[in-house]
Amino acid sequence: MLHIINKSPYDRCAVDSALATGAGVILLIEDGVYAAVKGGAEEKKIKGALGRFKFYALIADLEARGLGDRVIDGITPVDYAGFVDLVAENKTCQSWL
């Protein structure tokens, strides 16, 4: 299952809800990309989940927020085509709106 998260982990619990499902693929978009950034209080939680979940973050949203150079190691930046591929590759998709 692909989890799409577009909310900041410092504002909403969408990341926690996705992680609580167990395992899978997570794509961070819009304000969700703040979860992909090094140095913050949420970093530890994300790193701890890297074994169970494969993480992606949308490049355009990282760059818009001035964070393209601060992505946690182990999270893969993707472009819009990569976004489409992830949706196509996964049988189901849950958007944690």
């Binding site: 410092y10 504002d11 703040y34 490049i59 760059e63 818009a64 927020r65 001035g66 150079d69």
Partner: peptide, 17 residues
């Protein structure tokens, strides 16, 4: 405050969005 601090982050390149 809170996520508002992100508004002032340097290096915002919004062309892609």
């Amino acid at each position: 405050l809170d996520d508002g601090v992100y508004q002032l982050k340097k290096g915002q390149q919004t062309k892609g969005i």
